[in-house]
């Protein structure tokens, strides 16, 4: 009986271990395959030059440029709003108030809404409603803002990454000890002064983690920008907020599914994927490291 028990136990533990290692193995295989597939094409020149011969050759500079621009504009919108919401939830809202609960639910809902829905919303709200409205009001109906561009794509992406920022910053704010808030208040500081001088500086690392995670998410998401501003190919870099832009993820998607000759451009596709993967991987790794330090500090 005991022996049978022990064998069952070993089998069971073995199965769980196998599952964990299977996941790790797939991650490693994925990384290795993409590194091997992309390493020959990957070069400094690949990163800094324009596509050539109808994207059959050349580099991916405009896609990198567009992605960076996208996440920059996105962060400008998402980070302050996300941080302020986190401050509200931790400093102003009472845990039990209905408003706070509703906001928390809304944040979690935002985090689970499929990214394609954000794309639809960007189209219906930013492009048609706001952009179209701007055109009618200021340009007499001439089409300028009522069509996909980098501004609308970035704002759409900022809605998607808002919960990422909120959750990270909230976690960091909670690691600022209550004793420090009390010390500040006991010295005659007001609530806002305490937040400004003690709480926000104390959660800088969390705001940074949130920003990094949001940037990484924004750099990798494609669905929200499919029809809010990304373009197949542009001969020039975007110079205005009303321009369309190229994007790494979208570039991979187009090259892999709609290119005239998928096989011929395969090395470029792998190299582009490698670039995107490295970018998001390094951002996430940085965030994971900062966050684990933060958690250790909290203990």
């Amino acid at each position: 009986m005991n022996r049978k028990n022990r064998i069952t136990g070993a089998l069971f533990v073995g199965t769980t271990a196998f599952s964990a290692f299977l996941i790790i193995a797939v991650i490693i295989i994925l990384l290795v395959v993409i590194i091997i597939g992309g390493k020959d094409t990957f070069s400094w020149k690949f990163l800094t030059s324009f596509p050539e011969d109808g994207m059959m050759k050349g580099g991916i500079f405009p896609a990198i440029y567009g992605t960076v621009l996208l996440v920059l504009i996105m962060s400008v919108a998402a980070v302050p709003f996300g941080t302020i919401t986190a401050i509200y939830l931790t400093e102003y809202a009472k845990e039990t108030s209905i408003l706070a609960k509703t906001i928390r639910f809304a944040v979690r809902t935002l985090a689970t809404v499929p990214s394609i829905i954000f794309g639809l919303f960007g189209l219906g709200f930013f492009i048609k409603f706001v952009g179209g409205g701007m055109d009618n009001m200021f340009l007499g109906g001439q089409l300028k803002w009522g069509q996909p561009n980098i501004l609308w794509a970035s704002l759409t992406m900022s809605l998607l990454t808002l919960p990422v920022v909120i959750v990270s910053v909230e976690e960091a704010i909670r690691t600022v000890p209550r004793e420090m808030r009390e010390a500040s208040l006991a010295l005659g500081a007001t609530k806002w002064e305490t937040i400004k001088r003690i709480v926000i500086p104390g959660s800088r690392s969390g705001i940074m983690t949130g920003t990094i995670l949001a940037v990484s998410r924004g750099a990798g998401e494609v669905a929200p920008i499919l029809f809010t501003g990304a373009a197949y190919y542009l001969a020039t870099l975007p110079t205005s907020l009303s321009d369309q832009f190229m994007n790494l993820g979208y570039h991979i998607y187009i090259m892999a599914t709609q290119s005239a000759n998928v096989d011929q451009t395969l090395p470029i596709q792998f190299a582009t994927t490698l670039v995107l993967l490295m970018l998001t991987f390094m951002l996430n790794l940085t965030a994971v490291i900062i966050r684990s330090r933060l958690r250790r500090k909290a203990k």
Partner: peptide, 15 residues
Amino acid sequence: RKKVGMVFQKSNPFT
């Protein structure tokens, strides 16, 4: 609170 100061059990310097 400016007139009634407080010192806490656990020293709580700001970072």
